[in-house]
């Protein structure tokens, strides 16, 4: 059986516009991953460009749009995504394409940088380490595992519209990872930084991020928790005014 593989091609030096190039390929006997297929195609046409590194879903380099759904090529079996004998490979949506399946992730990383993805604690560090109860540590499960492959943020229409203002599901998941961390002492500051109309509130819960996450994480839930904390914070701010009125 022959497979019809359509790949998004664009070379800034030679092409004015991107186009789809079709490759015919004999279906391998065993089930292979999409990345392996790309490697085999690259032997036919060495100009096909894509990122890859660990080939086991840990580095998050080979995020791409596979038959309409974002995913990591290295852990997506061909049998799961083939539609008949067709496979369409496109770059991650919403980000500028540098070449073929390689996108410019600057906007994505800029949002990640914005949420200050590191532990901040003003108290004097203890001699060995900052301790945390097992219950508090459990709160970080489902948050810290993100590999920043950008599959979620680039599948989010809100991120397509406002990649410069909306933080996006990947960075918001990380923001909540530090908000929820009991060892971090800048919770108020972190929430304050997200309280504008765009950073968090552009999320309307369409769940595309959850649907595509190759690690099975739930950024939508983290965003919901941030929204609830912001709401509690905003009601707290109203209280002193009430006290003044009563006095």
């Amino acid at each position: 059986m022959q497979l019809e593989i359509n790949i998004y091609r664009f070379n800034a030096e030679t092409d004015a516009f991107p186009y789809m190039q079709t490759f015919n390929f004999a279906k391998p006997e065993r089930d292979i991953m999409v990345l392996e297929l790309l490697n085999l195609l690259k032997e036919q046409d060495p100009t096909i460009s894509y990122r890859r590194s660990c080939r086991e879903g840990v580095c998050g380099s080979d995020g791409m749009n596979i038959n309409g759904k974002n995913g990591l090529a290295c852990i997506t079996p061909l049998s799961q995504v083939l539609k008949g004998n067709k496979l369409d490979l496109r770059p991650l949506p919403g980000l500028p394409v540098i070449r073929d399946l390689v996108v410019d992730m600057e906007e994505f990383y800029a949002q990640y940088e914005k949420i200050k993805p590191f532990l901040q604690n003003d108290s004097t560090p203890p001699e060995i380490e900052r301790l945390q109860s097992p219950e508090d540590r459990d709160k970080l499960d489902g948050l810290y595992e993100c590999i920043l492959c950008a599959c979620c943020s680039t599948s989010c229409p809100s991120f397509w519209w406002n990649p410069d203002k909306f933080v996006g599901p990947a960075a918001l998941l990380q923001a909540y990872r530090f908000i929820a961390d009991t060892r971090d002492s800048r919770t108020e500051e972190r929430l304050e930084a997200l309280s504008d109309p765009f950073s968090v509130y552009r999320c309307h819960g369409i769940m595309n991020c959850v649907s595509v996450c190759p690690k099975g994480l739930n950024p939508n839930k983290a965003i919901g928790n941030i929204k609830s904390m912001l709401l509690k914070d905003s009601t707290k701010a109203v209280e002193p005014i009430r006290v003044i009125e009563q006095a």
Binding site: Y8, F17, P18, N65, G68, P93, P96, H204, M207, N208
Partner: peptide, 24 residues
């Protein structure tokens, strides 16, 4: 050098039912 294209073709991107509900 040409401008970097951006791929956003809603006809080629699969969205879950909840996305359809939100957009509509």
């Amino acid at each position: 050098m040409s401008i970097k294209p951006v791929f956003i073709n809603l006809l080629k991107i699969r969205l879950p039912l909840s996305a359809f509900m939100s957009i509509t």
